[in-house]
Design a protein around this nucleic acid. Structure first.
Lengths: 257, 257
DNA sequence: GAGCGTTGTTCCGCCATAGACACAACGGGG
DNA sequence: CCCCGTTGTGTCTATGGCGGAACAACGCTC
């Protein structure tokens, strides 16, 4: 089951135009399936909803009823999952109400583990990012130095590709006051660019700031409104942007992209 | 197709013990499927490998031959994909060698977009993280203040859950010299904890540092060896750890976990 | 002891998916 | 002009997954 766009419809992730697809390149939305692998099978979205339904309903029968699935299949699936993941549900046959099923601690833990992973993955698809084209000019191990329009930066990069896209997640970008910017030496070395604020877009309690750093596309930073107030950000303001190299990733690109 | 563990076998992501599954809770490995959604269908891992094979082989026929798939199915799949994503391949019927197929710029761009997404998602499953249990004590919009064993921190959190797990990705944690730690006011406000280095594990050009910050589990930070040298990190050293609240996510947990 | 609703297990059949196969169209090369 | 290998299209078939149904076992309640 697709759970790549948070709860509900995968189409909800990006605003798409229904008509085209031919011309509008922005109509393709990133998505993903969350999985937990063990021993040979993977615990997926459908399995998570099944466990949740059992937890709610108190019986496998009632669970598959509400989900519109078949009992036999769900039971088999549960058996296979328990071979790999251990006991997930305890079932009583006979007794009050005819019996029932309930999640074990392990089953409940697996469910929260799944949700935790899903939350982390959803960050990749939901958070804005800026991608800068560049060329690798040096490399030490898994870290490459990439020359971009904004300047040189260091990022995790796969080997053997001279042309790269560097993608910088907005939630990893830190903004600092341009005047009081501390010297780079006394913190963990980081990618650091001076820029001027282009736009400030307020969310509920979070602010998306676009900063011109000399590239053709601005750097996007996601910070709390509290931070935004402290730095009193407004268009035209000078800021220092910084982001860790271990948090930015480069991927190969076609040289003429 | 499963691509949640990088290229190849999904089992490669975590070292698992083949025998159990019953007792070893760490034998479950996170994984994912990368998807690009457009108009009604999703471009998935299989589609990506098909496009790559076409790009390599120069013809759809040779591509499906090397992949062991059927021509008819691959052709139909391509047609459906192109309805949603636009022209992905150009094909010539007849001519030298009987004809052939090649990727369009759009097709190649879709491929790199897919790979870029996959790279970002793989960061979630590959990078170490520390998860701290805690209780929500305040909330403003999508940001919650969570009380943990290490102290209070702020994180993105779903509504309506008092008990939370806060997960902090190692690549979002910044280390600073404890002596020269700048005041928190002049940067974007961040979660900040004093701690002492417990372990330093060297990778190829990257260092994993575990820092005791007062919780029962240490905070894990992933920094470059260059940064590690500058801070001259070693067990027992005092450091200041900091991480952005927009980069840390909280997920509901069972109160007794 | 009968009734009830659940678990646990098996078997059957439907249907969607994918491979296998066939065949026309195409266009350069020998 | 024929040959070739590819594209493009349709059809047949096998397989796997899933729903549906049937039935025994179970244990509390009445």
């Amino acid at each position: 089951m697709d759970d790549g766009s948070g709860p509900g419809d995968p189409a909800a992730a990006g605003s798409r135009s229904r008509d085209a697809g031919m011309t509008d390149s922005s109509s393709v939305a990133p998505a993903f399936d969350t999985k937990l692998y063990a021993d040979g099978i993977t615990f997926e979205g459908e399995d998570a909803t099944l466990l949740r339904a059992i937890d709610d309903a108190g019986s496998l029968n009632a669970a598959v009823e509400t989900l519109g699935r078949s009992y036999s299949r769900a039971h088999k699936r549960l058996s296979r999952l328990e071979e790999a993941f251990g006991s997930l549900v305890v079932s009583q046959r006979g007794g009050t109400g005819g019996g029932g099923s309930a999640l074990t601690d392990r089953g409940r833990a697996l469910l929260t583990r799944f949700e935790r992973l899903r939350s982390g993955l959803s960050g990749v698809t939901e958070v804005a990012e800026t991608v800068l084209p560049g060329e690798v000019i040096a490399r030490t191990g898994e870290i490459a130095t990439v020359e971009t329009a904004a300047g040189r930066l260091r990022a995790l990069a796969p080997p053997d590709a001279p042309a790269m896209f560097v993608t910088i997640r907005a939630d990893t970008v830190t903004l600092q006051d341009a005047d009081a910017a501390p010297p780079a030496a006394e913190t963990s070395a980081r990618n650091r660019f001076h820029g001027t604020v282009r736009g400030v877009e307020h969310g509920e309690s979070v602010v998306t700031v676009t900063v011109d750093i000399g590239a053709d596309r601005p750097l996007v930073a996601l910070i709390t409104d509290r931070s935004s107030d402290m730095l009193d950000l407004e268009p035209g303001a000078a800021v220092v942007t910084s982001f860790k190299t271990t948090a930015t990733r480069a991927t190969p690109r076609n040289p003429r992209e």
